[in-house]
Simulated scan of single mutants.
Amino acid sequence: MSDPADNPRDFTVLGQSRAAPRPEPALYLVATPIGNLGDITLRALEIIAGADRLACEDTRVTGKLLQRFSIERRMTAYHEHNAEEAGPALIEAVAAGQSVALVSDAGTPLVSDPGYRLVQQAHEAGVRVVPIPGASAPVAALAASGLPSDAFFFAGFLPQKEKARAERLEELARVPGTLVLFEAPHRIAASLAAMAAVFPERRAAVCRELTKMHETVYRGLLPELAAGFAAMAEVRGEIVVCIAPPAAEAVAEVGEADRILAGLLAEMKPAKAAQEAARLTGLARRDLYRRALDMKGR
């Protein structure tokens, strides 16, 4: 069965049918709602309906979006398990003069999904890439958190294993901005406990089910949030955690420690340099040793 790209497709908004023009040849990165389907933009609907090809993570998820806006068309699966095969075919389609729309299951493509590979391939092939902005869970959470938003760092998901998670949090402790992370509901209590151990003085916001019926934002110091979630019988839904940045004094302290470490490493091995830096700065030797190894390239 052919997908009649040469014929105009329609979509329906608020009960009214609108025609979707055929976009120019390009790879379009189309943001879709993170929960509430009403957050889709008119431009996104035009591209989704009008593009020659529609690539998505899960055809079942995208199918619900198409059904909501009365869009009838075929979809091409593009996800981490078939990216090697599906990616080149999509790039070839654009190079041959077609328009390709890429959507993720929710939010903006490339934010914590495999779409970046496709964009890399597009640039290498000289194919035009066009972002169609819209919903983004990290930005929505940051806006709702009440935490500083002039500088922030999106860190995706933390490692699942306890040791690796603690090490990653220690690395993130030096970031001079609000941290934004994703977490699964069955791991949120353990992750908050780990965060509280590294950042006991920092405020945070746990944003759950953003834009959906049971949207909730929990705010407080990390130890308070960790205790609260540990007491919950069950946690459900999509979760984004925002953590306040370190105090200016802490950032300056870390910078001074790095300067001292760099000087000591010129004459000492990492373990000895960390021990001496700990004596001079009062910071934890374990953290300084890890930093020394990073400086030496392990």
Results as ranks from 00 to 15, higher is better:
Ala5Asp: 11
Ala5Tyr: 12
Asp6Thr: 15
Asp6Ile: 08
Arg9Val: 05
Phe11Leu: 07
Ser17Met: 05
Ala19Tyr: 00
Arg22Tyr: 06
Arg22Thr: 12
Glu24Cys: 01
Leu27Glu: 01
Ala31Phe: 04
Ala31Lys: 03
Ile34Thr: 13
Gly35Ala: 03
Ile40Leu: 04
Ala44Pro: 06
Leu45Gly: 12
Glu46Phe: 03
Ile47Pro: 07
Ile47Gln: 02
Gly50Tyr: 02
Ala51Phe: 08
Arg53Phe: 12
Cys56Phe: 08
Glu57Pro: 10
Arg60Phe: 08
Leu65Ala: 02
Arg68Glu: 13
Phe69Ile: 05
Arg73Met: 11
Met75Arg: 00
Glu84Thr: 10
Ala86Tyr: 04
Leu90Asn: 08
Ala96Cys: 05
Ala101Tyr: 09
Ser104Arg: 05
Asp105Ala: 01
Gly107Pro: 08
Pro109Cys: 10
Pro109Met: 07
Val111Trp: 11
Asp113Phe: 11
Gln121Cys: 00
His123Trp: 14
Val127Phe: 06
Val130Lys: 07
Val130Phe: 03
Ile132Leu: 07
Gly134Glu: 06
Ser136Arg: 08
Ala140Tyr: 05
Ala141Ile: 05
Ala141Tyr: 08
Pro148Ile: 09
Ala151Asp: 02
Phe154Ile: 10
Leu158Gln: 02
Lys161His: 12
Ala164Trp: 01
Val175Ile: 13
Leu179Ser: 02
Ala194Met: 09
Ala194Glu: 07
Ala194Phe: 05
Ala196Ser: 10
Ala196Asn: 04
Ala197Ile: 07
Phe199Lys: 08
Glu201Ile: 03
Ala205Gly: 04
Glu215Val: 05
Thr216Glu: 15
Thr216Asp: 13
Arg219Met: 14
Ala227Gln: 13
Gly228Phe: 04
Val235Gln: 01
Val240Asn: 00
Val240Phe: 02
Val241Trp: 02
Cys242Gln: 06
Ala247Gly: 15
Ala248Ile: 10
Val251Trp: 01
Val251Lys: 02
Val251Tyr: 01
Glu253Arg: 15
Val254Ile: 12
Gly255Ser: 11
Asp258Met: 06
Ala266Cys: 03
Glu267Ala: 15
Glu267Gln: 15
Ala271Gly: 04
Ala271Gln: 13
Lys272Ala: 15
Gly282Lys: 07
Leu283Thr: 00
Ala284Leu: 13
Arg285Leu: 01
Asp287Thr: 14
Arg291Gly: 14
Leu293Phe: 04
Gly297Ile: 07
Arg298Ile: 08
